[in-house]
Design a protein around this nucleic acid. Structure first.
Lengths: 249, 249
DNA sequence: AAGTGGTCTAGACCACATC
DNA sequence: ATGTGGTCTAGACCACTTC
């Protein structure tokens, strides 16, 4: 049982795509496609390298990237196995816009506020800018099927990117940042819950006191600058946070 | 500015600890300790390898592990830099017990139920066992400073581990699993919110209708078996989910 | 004993960023 | 032009698992 699988693999040495990446893509496709079934052994690295005309470190690099993704498990003395299902996607720094779009919900956005305001102490601390200095304030209502789903309030340091209201209504903030050449690196998030204030209830078509799901997030680029601070509230009957996470070995 | 830092590094070749790991630990300690300041360049890999008497791939392996942790950033043509602060810990598969202990809260646990029950359709689907088959049901109340903080309801396939009630009260479920030789691999989580039912409110010393933070989780070991399914409710005034996440490059 | 992944070496050439 | 990380090779020995 769980036999070693012989797979049709090949690499194109004239391609600019790294060899290890070509291999890892083919393996990932084979796993997704079901050619490599859960529990099956991949065959040892040396033989795999010989078959492909690659060196063992290159093959290892390909396999390692899939181990990091949670698709494969290596066991010394045993071999490399395909993980038994259930792994879909690891936790990503996703935007609500992307989440909704992936779920086929075709999200709509209504920009409520798009202005420059002085930073309060809370905002200044989160973004690492002087208190009272100018920051962009963007307040949006996210809708799906015409129903309000979330209220998003974001603060962005000035001069980072153009915050065009029309663009904010047709795409997500993260996409605009990436398009502006900002390399997102990490984020610190807090997820909680609380009762809706009357204003919040009104915005989200809920009743005052109804439970709301809350998320605060500070996002950093790869230079360590804070590029965004957000305070979001979600209707828990319409949205919840769902994700896969991997145990760091 | 941002000058290259000369660091005192050394490796012990007689140690059983891998060389790359010795190096990455020393670099991590230097970053944590402030010897390597945010933004500072690490010095090129070849020179670093020569200085330590290591090969370049070994040095790269050490650096890569810290890049994966979000502590370092590599830029082709530029060098390797220490990320500007703010990275504390990536998202881990943590238990509430560990979280509370890390916060110095000295958690207490009260086991409400520890029994074997037939699996409902929901439980069977989550754990991948036949409907109606035996599963352990563990229901616990987690307290901090004598105040209830969360209600935890877990289902565990039979014969995975000894579920001693006394042990459940003094440690966390994940610790017991690891101690039983189970290698945790991944988990699928959903975080949401809802209003407390009268029973839930009573358990957590809240009022009926009060907002509760909810979490459902299925955890898998490295063979792909589901090892635990849990349905948890938290008092949002006492607990929220806080974590750092890294953008996959 | 045999087979596996884990670690390590000493080179090489290339792509990209900066000056 | 120079220096950096990104990729790749062809070996080697070791630790662990399984039989």
């Amino acid at each position: 049982m769980d036999p070693t699988v012989t797979l049709e693999l090949s690499v194109d040495r004239s391609s600019p795509v790294p060899l290890y990446f070509q291999l890892s893509q083919q393996l990932e496709a084979a796993i997704e496609h079901g050619t490599l079934t859960p529990g099956s052994l991949l065959g040892n690295e040396i033989e795999l390298a010989a078959r492909l005309g690659l060196s063992r470190p290159t093959v290892r690099q390909a396999i390692q990237s899939l181990v990091d993704k949670g698709l494969l498990v290596r066991r010394r003395g045993v071999g490399t196995q395909v993980v038994h299902s259930q792994v879909k996607r690891p936790l990503e720094l996703s935007s609500l816009y992307d989440d909704l779009e992936a779920a086929g919900q075709r999200p709509a956005t209504k920009v409520l506020v798009n202005a420059v305001v002085p930073a309060t102490a809370e905002i200044a601390a989160a973004l690492g800018v002087p208190e009272g200095s100018d920051v962009h304030r963007v307040e949006r209502l996210r809708l799906a099927h015409g129903e309000p789903m979330a209220h998003l309030c974001n603060f962005i340091p000035p001069a980072l990117l153009d915050l065009d209201t029309a663009q904010l209504e047709t795409t997500g903030l993260y996409r605009m940042m990436r398009a502006a050449g900002i390399t997102l690196h990490s984020a610190r998030q807090t997820i909680g819950a609380r009762a809706a204030t009357p204003e919040e209830a009104d915005r989200l078509a809920e009743e005052a006191g109804a439970p709301l799901l809350t998320m605060q997030r500070v996002t950093f680029d790869d230079t360590g600058r804070a590029v965004e601070y957000g305070t979001h509230t979600y209707r828990p009957t319409r949205y919840s946070f769902e994700f896969q996470l991997l145990v760091r070995p």
